[in-house]
Write a protein that binds this DNA or RNA. Structure first.
Lengths: 155, 155
DNA sequence: ACGGACTGGTTGCAAACTGCAACCGCCGGG
DNA sequence: CCCGGCGGTTGCAGTTTGCAACCAGTCCGT
């Protein structure tokens, strides 16, 4: 229990997401992707060929629509994702990774390899894992090409 | 507002951290490291040569001691960190990365490279970045050796 | 032996964030 | 004209986070 009944001033809350706690690179991604959902959105964009709000919402992990809307907006604000109208359906929007987002590919592959090694429940196909070990560069090129073509390719 | 004043049963909360939302490798690390602090603890262990509770607490980002205690306990529970008494000081404890924790090195290096490329404020030394690009394997070997020696080496 | 400082935490409270489910305006198709 | 899909928003409850005070055990100097 705080000792004094008249508690002194407390620091105002930090809604200021532009103010980082430090200039450490690890801290930067902890602040950008450090929550339970953001990485899953990136995964859906990068490996599952998803582009529309409803597709993300339909993910196995069942993200709530308000959380999804918030994460997409944040990712857009920090330049990892871009939103544009779908030319085929005027009522739809298309979400896509920017180059900054695509540059996360190596991180995502290392994450996949680590989980596959250390989590027995992880269900990544064997050929994908051997490709990460044996031919990282070639695999990445193929994945990025598939990304441009809008196909589902990932683990 | 919910329409019916008698709201139906809601699903009980999930304190059950052993139950994953899916078997996706990305989801696994999102659930394990998906918060604003865990990665910073890993960083301190991996690159800054920190070993004691007080050293982590003294990090630039100013983690609260209850959050730190919780994160260390979680990391220990999932086998990324190990705790043992410090032979030199009976009142101290030493926290160390297990092999599972050390295997995160490639992920951390890719994260560092990505931040350095896309965040202007990131202050990683140039030589470290070129080493990541030019000689990943050699750099990793050196870093792991330094880890065993308990030195500070990182970005 | 004693006091003070350091160790690794725990506790109480308030503020913030997350999750759920209901709801809503817009568009397109039949 | 209605009906469903689309991309959200809103209200509430439950959970997590942050802060600061506090604490027991150990170490150190005197």
């Amino acid at each position: 229990m705080p000792r004094s009944p008249d508690r002194p001033k407390r620091r105002p809350p930090r809604h200021d997401s532009a103010q980082l706690r430090s200039n450490c690179p690890i801290n930067f991604v902890a602040e950008t992707f450090g929550d339970k959902w953001t990485l899953l959105v990136i995964r859906d964009l990068m490996f599952k060929g998803k582009r529309h709000f409803g597709e993300f919402r339909a993910s196995e992990e069942a993200i709530a629509s308000n959380i999804l809307a918030d994460r997409l907006q944040r990712l857009e604000a920090c330049g990892v994702v871009e939103k544009r109208p779908d030319p085929a359906h005027r009522s739809k929007l298309i979400y896509e990774l920017t180059q900054k987002g695509r540059d996360l590919m190596p991180v995502m592959l290392e994450i996949t390899a680590w989980s596959a090694k250390h989590d027995a429940r992880t269900n990544t196909p064997k050929p994908f894992l051997t490709a990460i070990k044996r031919d990282r560069e070639g695999l990445m090129k193929g994945l990025l090409a598939a990304l441009d073509a809008g196909q589902k390719v990932g683990p």
